[in-house]
Amino acid sequence: MERASSRGEGRHTAQLSIAVALGVLALKWGAYLLTGSVALYSDALESVINVAAALAAWWALRIAALPADEGHPYGHTKAEYLSAVAEGVLIVLAALGILREALPALLAPQPVSLPPLGLALSVAATLINGGWALRLLREGRQLGSPALLADGQHLLSDVVTSAGVLLGIGLALVTGWHFLDPLLAAAVALHILWNGGQLVAGSVGGLMDAGVDAPTQAHICELVRGHGGGALEIHDLKTRSAGRLTFIEFHLVVPAQMTVEAAHGICDRLEDALAAELGGVRVTIHVEPQQEAKAERGGESGEAAIWLGPG
């Protein structure tokens, strides 16, 4: 089960993200006003999306923390995927807005300037975003939070594009090729568009009950083999993720003469091992007698069955 402290920690981080996003937006908008750069405009516009994304992540974490109820017996953790999908859509819209500004400027490039204050504001905003993105990614992995991970990935992408924007403006000033400024803005837009599409695709997979990744699936099988002593086989292993929770279910085949108490003891041992190793899991085990086994005794485990009994 999830710890309340972990859920509270995630919400606190999301609240701080809102403040950080607002601060970075002010810095980037100031840099744009000082320079008139289309590329810096595109960077500032993405920061508007960062604010909206931080608000969406905070809302999703509040909903996800609600306990299971009669209408939602599996909890509310999938709300985090809704936040990630919304963030992806907002990113796509921002990219389209940047392209709308960049294409006319590319056809009629205008000189840009990069005063020291504008440069300092842009660099400061990029450094703040970079540090906060690393924190979001670290806590997102620790808490298993799709909302925090999506926010961190977006901010990290923002850092990369900001660095590219500054490079483009610098090259435009050094070479006198003013078209580099809107060209970099268009490149930023395409990068943002790709990032938004990836976020939407990954989050939709969670909403569609996609199974865990191959390494996690293999780890689950190893844990079952290591802690399933006394049972004969498991089959029909299924997994799905819902936010920071992982649901695992399978059929456990035991000797026909085994008592209910003994079979229940094996189930408890397996559930405890999976929870200790993976954290945030809900395990459902259906116990069956020996005649329901799918793998041949002594044979290799098939794709749908893992033999646990003596070889």
Rank of each mutant, 00 (worst) to 15 (best):
R3T: 13
A4F: 05
R7A: 12
G8T: 05
E9R: 13
H12P: 01
V20E: 03
V24E: 01
G30A: 06
Y32L: 07
L33H: 11
L34R: 04
A44C: 09
N50T: 07
A56T: 11
A57W: 01
I63D: 14
L66C: 13
A68D: 07
E70Y: 02
H72N: 09
P73S: 10
G75M: 12
S83K: 05
S83P: 04
A84L: 00
V89D: 03
L90E: 02
A95E: 04
G97R: 08
R100V: 12
R100C: 06
P104V: 01
P104T: 00
L106E: 01
P109G: 00
P111H: 12
L114W: 00
A120P: 02
A120D: 04
L121S: 03
S122T: 09
V123K: 00
I128D: 08
N129M: 14
N129T: 15
G131N: 09
R138D: 11
R138H: 15
E139L: 15
R141N: 11
A147C: 11
A147T: 09
L148V: 05
A150H: 00
A150T: 08
D158R: 09
D158N: 14
V160P: 00
G164L: 13
G164P: 05
G168N: 03
A172G: 10
T175K: 05
F179D: 00
L180I: 10
D181H: 02
A186G: 06
V188N: 01
L190W: 15
H191V: 14
I192Q: 05
I192C: 03
S203D: 06
S203M: 08
L207S: 13
M208D: 07
A210P: 03
T216D: 02
A218Y: 08
A218M: 11
H219E: 15
L223R: 03
V224D: 03
H227Q: 07
G229Y: 10
L232W: 07
L232E: 08
E233Q: 12
I234R: 00
L237I: 14
L237E: 12
K238S: 14
L245I: 12
F250K: 06
L252N: 03
V254R: 03
E261S: 14
A262C: 07
A262Q: 14
A263P: 09
A263M: 10
H264N: 15
E271M: 11
A276D: 13
E277W: 02
E277T: 12
L278D: 01
G279Y: 04
G279F: 04
R282Y: 09
V283W: 02
I285C: 09
E288F: 10
E288I: 11
Q290Y: 08
G299F: 11
G299H: 14
E303H: 12
E303V: 10
G311W: 13
